[in-house]
Design a protein around this nucleic acid. Structure first.
Lengths: 361, 361
DNA sequence: TCTTCAATTGTAAGCGCATACATTAAGAGA
DNA sequence: TCTCTTAATGTATGCGCTTACAATTGAAGA
């Protein structure tokens, strides 16, 4: 790791000025071919790697986009990594119920979309998880490193976002469009739920429905609930004729809520505001020997991969997560190109995906 | 997006010099409390966010670590993101066989580990997918921006890595330790497979085994195969007494190989060098009505989450992916602290996880 | 009160690159 | 061959920050 060569070294070696070296790298067309080749040769020989810090400073933009997603520190112990030789291999029985790692998938796909789109547009992608304690430091830290920031809804306090947004474009992902100054990218929550609910109410002819909503502070959830209400109206049903409960978007919450429902009721369909809740509901139904879809129809929302592996497989509304990631980057670059744009809002189309838990009629 | 304030603005507003502003941010203890408060107040009022580019240039380190993972561009269409209002929602039947998105999980966990460890140590994390072998991509996108680089094995050509390694520490993830100058972090492939194979050979008393290896260019695979051979020796079996085939680590490859095996053979156990292959094998066995584990035992390697959802659930050797990510960052920071370290190699312990496809005896 | 020395703060010099502007080389036209 | 125009290259400056070193301050000791 010798001292890294700089433009000066390359310039000297190839007998040109640093400006020419810079040009060869930045706008090769402006340099005569002969010169360019000499410079490039020197670059290779010296193992020159341009310093992004210097470039960013001079050009006043880093060409990096930041992606902020929810944290998950609980899962990882604080102990240092030890390099213990793994020569003794324990043999264990797997008794897990596979209820973990669902949300991860969501983020993973968003990340992939963002990564792809960023790359295509010539940006690098920096990621950070919102760790409770030091969130503020983290956000400003990353804000100083990037040209724009995409944040998963509800992972960063608005006040902090506003602070950051004074400097760089901020786009909020997967939270509904609120009337604020941020750009928003989200899926078509309302219409998605409405379509699915209509399928249940009309195609399946179900009247006896329970809806399990999510946390009240989730804008996505609010839209989905609203979509459900629209569907009720579409079928001429009074809201008082159905039961609407709240849960918390988790599988455990879904289980608890299902238990609560079954204590007094046996609806023909249970519509859940997200997949994890629905999976929890399925758990309870199976455990009690209630057949899905014969006795009860169950639906979710999101399209997480666990829903494809459940038994029965889960009917859901699929959000285009990869596209969400791409759209977020798109929104940021659009604003970078034209900072005076009005706050915009991208709503990506969703799909109702029918599987066994609520099959095609 | 007004012009961002700089140290000069903060200095002027708080009536100190820029050096003091810098100190307040970098080493607050060196500044009198009274002064510090004034400066911090100015920071907040102005909405100051330090420029990482300038800091990186001055400090000669970026405090960013790069993570390079395998590409996947094929999956995403090139079409631009359109902000079409998603008001019409199609209803589709899901006929996918869920054979996608398995590898993603692997990477996702590594990422989480890396992310956590990086921020804990005061580094930001930059991610990039390996696209082709474009040198410009690696060099200009990542190498110039980071203090160190973690690369998933086989995603970047060695030659390129060598080039980059002249400047910054490079650690290779999940490829076996080769005798090169890079640092390596990997799981205990050999002992893991050996333990699992011994369980099959000795505890289950199986003699009639087929082993499905992976691609020859995978160092992980080579170690696993070697572990399998060790197990044969442990049981006093000649290598000629078992059948060893090669596949390609994919689910489809597993299916094809299983078909090939069954054409001539009906072994009591099929050991696969990774989970995806094993899942493909399960597909074929189920389709032919061959019972697992009653007729055939099947095992995998990796511990991907799909293996927990398969029917029957898959016995496997679980790699600590989160820990791999953490260890990679650890290795990089260790080398940053002491560049003269000998090339090191971290081998993380694995676990044999028994599930129904090869249950506890 | 006058020193002395440590604690604070200020001054100034880059870090490596991009780029406006100045300079020079190279063709084109006569 | 000489001038004019354009292409190619060089010169010089500054991006915003860290940090060695200088200057100043202030409290303790004489």
């Amino acid at each position: 790791m010798a001292k890294a060569p700089t433009v000066y070294d390359v310039a000297e070696r190839s007998g040109v000025s640093i400006a020419t070296v810079s040009r060869v790298l930045r706008s090769p067309a402006a340099v005569r071919e002969h010169t360019r080749e000499r410079v490039l040769a020197a670059v290779t020989e010296l193992g020159y790697v341009p310093s992004a810090a210097a470039r960013g400073l001079a050009a006043r933009r880093t060409n990096v986009i930041g992606l902020f997603f929810p944290g998950h520190d609980e899962t990882v112990p604080d102990q240092p990594v030890d390099s213990a030789r793994g020569d003794t291999v324990p043999i264990v029985d797997d008794d897990s119920d596979a209820s973990s790692d669902t949300e991860n998938l969501y983020f993973d796909e968003v990340l992939r979309g963002a990564e792809i789109e960023a790359w295509r547009r010539g940006f690098a992608l920096m990621v950070a998880a919102g760790r409770g304690s030091s969130r503020e430091a983290l956000v400003t830290d990353i804000a100083g490193r990037v040209d724009g920031l995409a944040v998963l809804a509800r992972t960063v306090p608005d006040e902090l976002l506003t602070y950051v947004a004074r400097r760089i474009p901020v786009v909020i992902l997967a939270g509904a469009q609120r009337a604020d100054d941020f750009d928003h990218v989200s899926a078509s929550n309302g219409p998605g739920m409405r379509t699915l609910a209509n399928y249940v109410l009309q195609d399946h002819g179900v009247r006896d429905v329970v809806y399990i909503a999510g946390p009240t502070d989730s804008p996505d959830d609010a839209e989905r609930l609203s979509g459900f209400r629209d569907a009720l109206a579409d079928s001429g049903l009074a809201e008082s004729s159905v039961r609407i409960l709240r849960s918390d978007f988790t599988r455990d919450g879904g289980r608890a809520t299902a238990a609560r429902i079954l204590a007094t009721d046996r609806p023909r369909a249970i519509l859940c505001s997200n997949d994890e809740t629905a999976l929890g509901v399925l758990d309870v139904l199976e455990q009690r020997g209630i057949r899905v879809p014969d006795d009860v129809l169950v639906t979710g929302f999101d399209g997480i991969s666990a829903g494809r592996h459940s038994r029965p497989r889960l009917t859901t509304v699929h959000q285009p997560m990869v596209e969400l990631g791409r759209a977020a980057v798109h929104a940021i670059t659009a604003r970078l190109d034209d900072p005076n744009l009005e706050p915009q809002s991208f709503t990506l189309p969703v799909e109702v995906v029918l599987r066994e838990s609520c099959p095609r009629v």
